[in-house]
Amino acid sequence: MSDDAVFEFLHSELINYIISQNEGKSKEGKDEDLSNIEYIGFSTGYRIIERLTKEMPRFKDELDTMKFICTDFWSALYKKQIDNLRTNHQGVYVLQDNSFRFLTKLSSGKQYLEVAPRFVAFTCGIIRGSLANLGIGCLVTAEVQNMPSCKFHIQVQRT
């Protein structure tokens, strides 16, 4: 039980730290700050996937990998699964989590909608890193319309 809380606290402190660091620099735009957080997430995801897929059989294809992300991976990280996975079979996937763990602690209304992106940047990085290590290069963005649900858009980059 206590492990979850520790992770959440660490995550929110991490965001706090990065934001405050960036305020010292320039006020150019908030968009830049999140790249640091996203990179931390990328690095984490890249490494953790090695551990998590140790016992798993090999993935057949891309869709299989996505399903793994939605189920086992999400459970391992956030103790629940993704509620909805949609794809257009052309490399775009949308993962919807109706009560995203980091957002559930904030009030569900319009009040914190603006700062919600900060809390999902880390997770975007995690997804991107995990997929990168599995051999799928992609671009991950997140969209928060109603707190606390969150949609992750994954666009696979085909080279």
């Binding site: 996937i49 090695e50 897929t53 798993m56 090999r58 993935f59 290590n133 599995l134 051999g135």
Partner: peptide
């Protein structure tokens, strides 16, 4: 002749 080689590939292509 003298050796056998075994392989193992992870999901991350290592």
């Amino acid at each position: 002749e003298t050796h056998k080689i075994y392989g193992y590939v992870t999901n991350t292509k290592i």
